[in-house]
Design a binder for these strands. Structure first.
Ligand SMILES: [Zn+2]
Ligand SMILES: [Zn+2]
Ligand SMILES: [Zn+2]
Ligand SMILES: [Zn+2]
Lengths: 135, 135
DNA sequence: CTTATAAATGTTATATTATTACATAGTGTT
DNA sequence: AACACTATGTAATAATATAACATTTATAAG
């Protein structure tokens, strides 16, 4: 059996795969220039090559950007159907970041409307506190 | 009658006041170097002077940072008692940013606990969509 | 008022994060 | 082949943010 349509949609180019693999196996969010340093041995030499791959990976939901940290983490919600609805917890001591997957939270936020009745197509939520270890 | 304690707590230094005034009268979030450019005539010449004032203003809740935009907006929740609980709506076309003040939302998020029972001391939420004008 | 302390400022240099511009190469479709 | 689209390579530069150090100003205590 060949490559299914859904696989093709999510198939990654060479640079994208290299950079995704690195992020995916990292226990912590990675910054763009940390990524660059770590993939230079694989032939990726310039910042732009990294940023282009990151942009694409974010777009297709394989990774998320932690905005408050300018860092990138792999999605662990089965290749995020919620690329447009992200929530993270961030420890302010050890900087551990965890993707939150809560049906209640997603539902609440997806249905949230402000006073103007503005409906949102996307959100990003970052919680800060102390993780178990650091408490 | 003199300066009350609460006023003193929130009293701003010269640079802080200059920069707060600029942000406060701006209809849109301002970026650090835009601020720098606009206060050079008032004697603030270096990025660090701007960033120091911004740090302090964020700390005391007079302004908030819009993380996804690297820009700063004045707090309009009566000098934010919720500096640690911020929510914004952002128009992806015109980049208009509005601070959301919803008792329901604040309450929901303040009480949110993840699977680990981690309790959070702070959060930042950014909604993205189209504003009235851009729809 | 004097001394001590913390907060703020001024200045230069540098680090970090991200994009512009342009040329080239691969991939899939008709 | 011709076309459109995506991805890559490379150099230069723009935009965002911090380090290090010297000095000054504000606050509080004795
Ligand atoms: Zn995800
Ligand atoms: Zn921790
Ligand atoms: Zn506020
Ligand atoms: Zn708009």
């Amino acid at each position: 059996m060949g490559i299914s349509k859904i696989d093709k949609m999510h198939s990654l180019s060479k640079n994208q795969q290299i950079i995704f693999d690195l992020i995916n196996k990292s226990p912590e969010p990675l910054k763009a220039y940390t990524i660059l340093f770590n993939v230079q041995k694989k032939g990726i030499k310039a910042p732009l090559q990294v940023y282009r791959a990151l942009d694409k990976l974010v777009e297709i939901g394989k990774i998320h950007k932690i905005e408050s940290r300018n860092a990138f983490i792999a999605c662990h919600n089965s290749s995020c159907q919620v690329a447009k609805a992200t929530a993270f917890s961030i420890c302010e001591i050890c900087e551990k970041v965890t993707e939150i997957s809560s049906a209640g939270l997603s539902k609440y936020l997806a249905n949230f409307k402000d006073k103007d009745g503005m409906k949102y197509s996307k959100y990003n939520l970052e919680f800060f506190g102390l993780c178990k270890k650091c408490r």
